[in-house]
């Protein structure tokens, strides 16, 4: 990596600390005398929506300011977004790919459909055990350091201490466990798969300015095409036998994701439920419980 710029792309959901991840590592690299750059990328989506962050590390000054389209390393902080085509978009040949998942190496490879140097770690479990919240960023930093060896774990520790002055202990603990428990593919256990055609999605060709169309008319209510159900990490489970058909959950749902079944009880529309838990909190008979999302 003497002359080269290493390009790293981070994927996760808003609120998991994706941007913080890139920032911490950039700061650590700078503290080691390297050049680094981090930038977030998000659309209008908020907490819970898929987001990405970019990180460049080099021994020479970096003049590039663009988004990263052809990453050398990809890190995915959330197990549920592995299936999105964005995570493998434009990925370089023999890139390093670190995924937070409880699946086996081989299975993840088939999900991705791309031949990459894969590493897996169940960071959500570690984060829940140590930090008690599914915030996986520091755990994934540990795995990243182990897999790539670009920055030293000591300098990241220092950055975490300045960034989280009150709760750095748990975060450092999570990082060390992430470092220790990463399962990386070696030449011995490597699975080579036939690459999917659409697995390695190329960047779409952008139109030239003369080819741009003049605005568009949006159909009323067209946002329904976007299913916000993938945002949630907790899922409301309704016990229909306890439901008294009062409709309080329906009134209080900000996403109008509760609907009445023909027999009068209320159920959740899982296509749109973001898992905020208001219905469970406000239900007078406590017939709704929030449970961890299963596949």
């Amino acid at each position: 990596m003497k002359e080269k710029i290493i390009e790293i792309r981070w994927h996760g959901r808003g609120g998991q600390g994706v941007v913080t991840c890139a920032e911490l590592l950039a700061k650590a690299a700078i503290a080691e005398g390297k050049y680094a750059q981090s930038a977030p990328s998000f659309g209008p989506e908020r907490r819970g929506a898929p987001v990405a962050a970019f990180l460049r590390i080099s021994n020479k000054p970096i003049y590039l300011r663009s988004q990263i389209t052809h990453p050398d390393i990809v890190v995915v902080l959330d197990p549920t977004i592995l299936t999105l085509p964005d995570v493998t978009a434009g990925i370089k040949k023999n890139a390093i790919f670190i995924a937070n998942t409880n699946k086996l190496l081989e299975d993840v490879k088939y999900i991705l459909g791309v031949n990459v140097n894969l590493g897996v770690i169940d960071a959500t479990k570690i984060a829940l055990e140590i930090i008690r919240r599914p915030i996986t960023n520091t755990t994934m930093i540990g795995s990243f350091i182990r897999a790539t060896n670009i920055v030293k774990i000591e300098s990241v520790k220092q950055e975490i201490m300045t960034r989280f002055p009150t709760n750095y202990e748990t975060n450092i603990k999570a990082m060390i466990r992430g470092y220790d428990e990463l399962e990386m593919e070696t030449d011995a256990n490597r699975t080579v798969i036939k690459e999917k055609k659409d697995g390695k999605k190329a960047m779409p060709k952008l139109p030239k300015w003369r080819e741009l169309t003049i605005g568009l008319t949006t159909k009323a209510g067209s946002a329904q095409a976007y299913k916000t159900g993938s945002w949630r990490s907790l899922v409301p489970v309704t016990d229909a036998t306890k439901c008294i058909k009062c409709g309080i959950c329906w009134v209080y749902c900000p996403d109008s994701a509760r609907y009445q079944t023909p027999d009068g009880t209320y159920e959740t529309n899982f296509d749109y439920c973001k898992g905020c838990g208001i219905c469970a909190r406000e239900c007078p008979t406590h017939c709704i419980t929030m449970q961890e999302e299963k596949e």
Partner: peptide, 24 residues
């Protein structure tokens, strides 16, 4: 709640955060 207008004019699929009081 049964007497409230069933028509949804602010449809689901909007990008508000989880538990957004504004969307409600």
């Amino acid at each position: 709640p049964k007497l409230i207008n069933k028509q949804e004019d602010f449809v689901h699929g909007h990008r508000a955060c989880q538990g957004c009081g504004l969307a409600l």
